[in-house]
Computed example of a mutant assay.
Amino acid sequence: MSEASTRLDRRGFLTGASTLAAGSALVAAGGLSVSSASASAPLAGQPMAGAIRRKVGSFEVTALLDGYLDIGSEQVLGHDEDIAANLRKEAFVEGSGYRLPINAFLLNTGDKLVLVDAGTSDQMGPTLGKLGGAMAAAGVTPEQIDAVLITHMHPDHLFGVLKPDGSKAFENAELLLPETDYRFWFDDAALNAAPDAFKPFFLGARKSADAYAANQTLFGSDKELLPGVTSVDLAGHTPGHVGFRVDGGDDGLFIIADAVHVSSLQFAQPDWGIAFDTDPAQAAKTRRKVLDEVSSDGHLVAGSHLPFPGFGHVARSGDGYRFAPADWQYSN
C-alpha cells in the first residue's frame, strides 16, 4: 500500500466531515433511522472491570478497582450537615451518603510484580471483591504476583489475600505487613477491648496474615522495601498505617493509602475523620501533614479511596485543600 493511499488528505477529510454533517441533519429531521440490529443490543447491566495503567518513571502502576462501599454521614467524624451539604453540591454528590471506592495498585518494577493492598475477597458484600476481574483486565494472574504490600490490616486492604475458601489467593507471593499494625491486630488485649462489631476485624486480620506465615515479612516505616519503594509512617487511621513512596527515577508517586476517605469532604475539611480511625486526632494530624506536603511539592498521589483510578494532585484552597484528578495518559 502506498503512502498516498494510507494518508488522510485534507480533501478526503472535508468530504467525510460533510457526509457526517449531512447524516446528522437527517437524523435530527427524522429522515434516517437506526437499524434494528444495532438498536437491539441488550444493556450490559454491569460496569467493566476497573484497571487503568500509567507510567511513573521506569515503573508501570496499574490502579485496580475492588468495588465500592457506601457510608452514611454518621460515619464521618466531625460531620456538619450545613457545611457538608454545600460540599456535596460543589462536588455534584447526590443524596446524603458517600460512596468510597476501594482501590489497589499494581507496581511493575521491571523485575517484580508487586500488589499494594489486596481488596476484600468475599468478606464485605456484593459491591466489593472485584479485584480478580480487574487484574484479569490488566492481563495479570494471581500466580504472577511476587509480593503483596499491605498499607494496614483493615478488611478492605488485607482480606483479599485469601480466596473465599480460605486458601492463599497469591500462592507465589511474599506478604509484607507493617510491623506496628501487625502487633496491634495480634494483641489480645486490644481484641478484648474492641467493640463486638470490630472483633471480626481482628480475627480476619490474623487469619489472613497466618496463611502467609511461611512467606511473610514485617517492616517498619521509612524503610526501602524494594528498589524505588519506601514505606512512610501514616499512623492514626490504624496504629501502623503506612503509605508508600514510589521512585521511578525521573518521576514519582506517593501512595497515601487511607489518609483521605471521603474526597468530597476531607480535602476541604481535613480535620473530619472516619469512624474506622483508631486514633481520630492522630489521623487528622497525619492527614494535614500529608496534604501540606503534597500540595507544596506537587507530587502525584494515589489514594485507596480517592475517585477511581485514584491518581491526582493536591492544591491548597483557603484553609483546606482540593483534589485535582490526574490527566489520562494516552501513551507511554
Rank of each mutant, 00 (worst) to 15 (best):
Q46K: 11
D247P: 11
G78N: 04
F198C: 03
A193S: 15
S38Q: 01
A257Q: 09
H299A: 09
A194F: 12
A85C: 00
A189H: 15
L43Q: 14
A29E: 06
I150F: 03
G243M: 09
D319G: 11
N108M: 05
V242L: 12
G310Y: 08
S167I: 03
M48N: 10
G133H: 12
I52E: 13
E81V: 04
A21N: 11
A138F: 07
P239N: 10
L203Q: 11
F323M: 05
V161F: 02
M135C: 11
V56N: 00
R99Y: 09
T120N: 11
A213D: 15
E81R: 08
G236V: 09
T286Q: 09
H79W: 11
T62L: 00
G228Q: 06
F201W: 06
I256Y: 12
H313F: 12
G23I: 01
G133D: 14
A259T: 15
V114E: 02
F198K: 08
A197E: 12
A283N: 01
S2L: 14
L149H: 02
L77S: 09
G220Q: 10
S33M: 04
A281V: 07
F276N: 07
A37C: 07
S24T: 12
Y98G: 13
G30F: 07
G240P: 10
R322C: 02
A118Q: 00
L14H: 07
L100E: 06
E293P: 00
A324M: 04
A169V: 05
V260E: 02
G133M: 12
A194K: 12
A51G: 08
E3T: 15
P227E: 05
D277I: 00
P309G: 07
H313W: 07
R206L: 15
S40T: 11
G72K: 05
G220C: 08
I71D: 01
Q329T: 04
M48C: 04
A104T: 12
A17S: 10
I150N: 04
G273Q: 05
G220M: 05
V27C: 05
D279W: 08
K130T: 06
P142H: 04
A104H: 08
E179W: 00
T127V: 02
S96R: 13
L115H: 08
A17E: 07
S40I: 01
G166S: 12
R7F: 03
R53M: 03
A193W: 13
L43W: 13
P200F: 14
K163N: 06
P307M: 05
L106E: 08
A283S: 06
P309W: 09
G67Y: 14
D297I: 10
R206V: 15
K168R: 15
P142T: 08
I256M: 15
S263N: 14
H79N: 13
S221M: 03
V232D: 01
L234D: 09
W328L: 00
L32T: 00
Q75L: 12
G125D: 08
V140I: 10
T141C: 05
S35N: 00
R206G: 15
E90C: 01
E224Q: 14
L43H: 12
G320K: 01
A281I: 01
G95S: 01
